[in-house]
Amino acid sequence: MPRAESLESWYKLHAPAVFRRARRMLGSDVEAQEIVQDVFLSLHERPQQFSGKSSVTTFLYAVTTHACFTRLRNQKNRRRLMDERSEAETQTEAGGPSPELTLLARRALSELPEDVASALVYYALDGMSHEEIARVLDCSRRHVGDLLLRAAQFARKAEA
């Protein structure tokens, strides 16, 4: 349970990653900054969210992905965000995902079930192994394989 002073230190340690991942998923600095605020203010208001069973980093990965998923799933937000995003807004990072993968992940977040979309984001955007994804999703590696199989089917359809 983060106290105020540890929340401040959590912010310095983890907010850059929350921002980076949210910006990639939503394609907007403004939206990503709001996710950072939402995540940390929510943690301040309800510190019991973090049970301590996982590392802070994996917990915040899951929370950030869910926050972006929720934002894209709100139909009003989705319409606005998807309308406002373009390929030009996907930034290429050294060693980061390609613009095509970034766009695919955004589509997945707005169209696929949350567990499938999250697995796709962790694999394609964050470069995580099946084992790491299993750790963040708190499930088996076999289940991660199933989720990624469904994500691959979605990718094939999107490409067709």
């Binding site: 340690l13 993968l101 694999y123 394609a124 964050d126 470069g127 995580m128 192994s129 790491e132 990624l148």
Partner: peptide, 27 residues
Amino acid sequence: MTAEIARPRSERCLSDLTFDEWFAGEL
């Protein structure tokens, strides 16, 4: 199985999660 969805780097490479845990002193 996930050939259509390529990871940004090779299977042996470090993920962003590993880097972030490293920065946070969690490794």
